[in-house]
């Protein structure tokens, strides 16, 4: 349990940073909701909150990132008022599947944060689509798959480069030293 101290607690400084990241991802989520739709398709969003997930994957342990993602999904659901509605499950499954694939992609050092983001963006869209299909008992939505895959490319690049810049900046501040175990 390298990330926890002897008492099984997350160090205060790290806890604060994690909380900050959750807050940031929620903030980005809110910003994203304020931007009018770009494509009238289910699941097509900028996925700005993914930036935070990518950053965290490089700074924290995977299980901590998972906790952060789950927290974000639940809190956003509560705030948006769609907790436990179809919309909640759809965005939740997107976020979770995206996290799982990015966590897997992270293990290959050959991918940079941009590559990881691309994987995450595609997985995010596919995950949402699968949930929509499951919830509504209809395969019809897979018609959108090509658009979602295509949209994942610029989306992944955007989050990837943002995350890359953020990680670099964070490393420059030396902040990350304090959070590595």
């Amino acid at each position: 349990m390298p990330s926890f101290n002897d008492h099984g607690r997350i160090p205060a400084r790290k806890l604060v940073l994690l909380a900050l990241m959750v807050a940031l991802s929620m903030g980005l989520h809110a910003v994203e909701n304020m931007i009018p739709f770009l494509f009238p398709m289910p699941g097509i969003k900028l996925g700005l909150a993914n930036i935070i997930t990518v950053i965290c994957l490089y700074l924290f342990q995977r299980r901590e990132v998972l906790i952060m993602v789950v927290l974000r999904v639940i809190l956003v659901g509560l705030i948006a008022g769609n907790f436990l509605t179809p919309g909640f499950w759809i965005s939740g499954s997107g976020a979770l599947i995206s996290f799982l694939s990015m966590a897997a992609a992270c293990r290959f050092p050959k991918f940079s944060s941009v590559g990881v983001s691309l994987v995450g963006a595609a997985a995010h869209n596919i995950g949402q689509l699968m949930m929509v299909s499951l919830l509504m008992g209809s395969k019809a939505v897979f018609y959108y798959l090509p658009w979602l895959l295509a949209w994942a490319v610029p989306m992944g690049l955007l989050t990837g480069f943002s995350a890359k810049a953020a990680i670099k900046a964070l490393r420059n501040t030396g902040l990350d030293d304090t959070i590595e175990p």
């Binding site: 050959k110 991918f111 940079s112 590559g115 994987v119």
Partner: peptide
């Protein structure tokens, strides 16, 4: 971006 990122893209 690494070479593998490009391949992925």
């Amino acid at each position: 971006m690494s070479r593998h990122d490009w391949i992925l893209l």
